[in-house]
Nucleic acid binder design. Structure first.
Lengths: 316, 316
DNA sequence: CTATCTTCATAACATGAAGGTATATTGATT
DNA sequence: AATCAATATACCTTCATGTTATGAAGATAG
């Protein structure tokens, strides 16, 4: 004999509020409705649920046991309501994001931290990839948002793109680096130092190669490669190596005084750091909220970067 | 926005069985029914529950969360069903019993032990009392069954009575007692020994007094009084005291060799040990089962007592 | 003990949520 | 492209549940 969860919930409400009438009020129903349901249950169970002819309604032992389950059900139902509400409001859920490693580590991770401070019920699943993978992952549906530098003219078919920062790259080194103190750097100055190469296949790597080629350096010395941002920064700090990083990443590190940018303008294809997503499929509220958050954070960040950049003379 | 527990349960069933059609089978409903409910929920929640246009039906994150609650609800509902079933079958619940202390301790406690071995979900609440209290407690409704010696002609108004054993009392002593070895005991032999008096107010006490008076002993020496069965048996074992006990209590102790009965017939009002209850109010299944159990156990016990009793010559 | 108050039970009716069957639609598969 | 299997839709039906009105019964106070 199956018992309707709603009925169990009703029993709990009746007991907890101390009577049919009170229970009816608590449940927003009429008293006869409860009365009838109780009678029906008693008939089906073959046992009384409330002692007969007792006016302060006294629940039977069986009724107590059933009401216990009813309370569990009530609780679960309430939890579901809450989940649904949070979810719809974009305050709970999951956002699956993916992006270029250096930028995710160097900039986005900070924002995720503050975001999760505000919305602890939103889980972020992060992966790494470059434009090709990202497009694929978005199309397949494994990822909700991709964050990477994109040439605005060549946004992949079927994706929306929202730029968040200019994708300018710079030459980075430790603040203690000999070049860091020079006010005017000539390109020849750069030549002697070893390089930390960004992951092969990344735009950064291409930029490093082409920039150096432009200076005339074809065979540059790569002292380290394959590491993620954390390794790169450690190695920069402990050596005289140079590397190429998005300026925003260097900027975010500025308070830790681990990395600095050389005031040299690197020529590279114009790109915008931005967010990619598929607009043709429904965007979950939590994802939308995260995207909006990124956009607003970055508009602030872009302003701060802009202000600081004005004081620097970038040479070619 | 309140969510119907049944709907949550449905989501769980759909996910767990892997599709609408399978879920429908699991829930004993038609596929369109589930389809429609899901659609309705999606409309009300404002979010999809299953990804659109994916044929192996893929539940949304939200749907998973809701289904989690649905499983909790399913579980609670199932538990309720089980409780109700056990209860109705008299395999779960509570029986509140009360009875005369010596008999409860000496005979009933054993039976409760085996009973609870068979029906661990039935809780027994035991209290003590004599006929007056017991009647009162039964009438008030604090107790479901009373067990005590009753003169069958004077069953209190409004109570049913079922005899389970002849209420015969005997003089009891330690097996090491000087009288225990005598094959023929004269009443004068008894006079010198001190007595352990059963609780004042108990029928046993009355029986002791009147039996001794009949022998001619008016002033008997009471060496101990007020104790429950455990104390009485200890003291009997360590002294030459005598006492009066229901023969069934002595019989139940026979395997421990702590107590023996003197082959002397005690004159006392004819009583039957039995079970009292109010038949005008509904008997809970667990109580009924316990009562039936008592009756069947006692019919076996009565037979064993009878057999053993035949070998003994009871003198007056 | 009676009068009165409160609370529960019952009756009669209304309605809508949910179920069923038949069938169209749409991903998946070959 | 054709076929298959699973889901969505349309339409009808029914029964659980809700409502209001009212009767019955336990509790309470004078």
């Amino acid at each position: 004999m199956k018992i309707d969860p709603n009925h169990l919930h009703m029993l709990a409400a009746i007991i907890d509020s101390g009577g049919l009438s009170e229970g009816a009020i608590a449940l927003n129903k009429s008293q006869p409705s409860l009365s009838r349901t109780v009678a029906m249950l008693e008939a089906r169970l073959g046992s009384r649920l409330f002692e007969k002819g007792k006016r302060p309604l006294r629940p039977t032992e069986l009724c107590q046991s059933l009401a216990d389950q009813g309370r569990i059900i009530l609780h679960a139902s309430e939890a579901a309501r809450q989940v649904a509400e949070l979810y719809s409001g974009g305050k709970a859920g999951t956002a699956r994001i993916s992006g270029t490693p250096i930028f995710m580590d160097g900039v986005i991770s900070n924002m995720i931290a503050t975001f999760q401070g505000a919305f602890p019920e939103i889980a972020i699943h992060q992966t790494y990839g470059y434009l090709g993978d990202l497009t694929e992952q978005l199309n397949v549906g494994n990822v909700d948002l991709a964050i990477c530098p994109v040439c605005p003219d060549t946004v992949p078919e079927g994706l929306s793109f929202k730029p968040i920062l200019p994708g300018r790259n710079v030459i980075a080194c430790a603040p203690s680096h000999p070049l860091a103190r020079k006010s005017a750097i000539k390109l020849e100055d750069i030549a002697p130092y070893p390089w930390i190469a960004p992951p092969a296949g990344s735009p950064l790597y291409e930029d490093l190669r082409s920039a150096l080629a432009r200076i005339g350096i074809k065979d540059f010395k790569v002292s380290f490669t394959g590491g993620s941002l954390a390794s790169i920064i450690s190695i920069l700090a402990g050596s005289e190596s140079l590397t190429v990083l998005p300026y925003s990443v260097v900027f975010m590190q500025s308070n830790t005084k681990n990395v600095t940018a050389l005031p040299v303008r690197l020529e590279h294809p114009s790109r915008e750091l931005g967010v990619l997503w598929r607009d043709d499929r429904p965007i979950r509220p939590a994802v939308l909220r995260f995207r909006k958050y990124l956009e607003s954070e970055f508009s602030g960040l872009a302003k701060r970067i802009e202000e600081k950049g004005r004081n620097i003379v970038w040479r070619n």
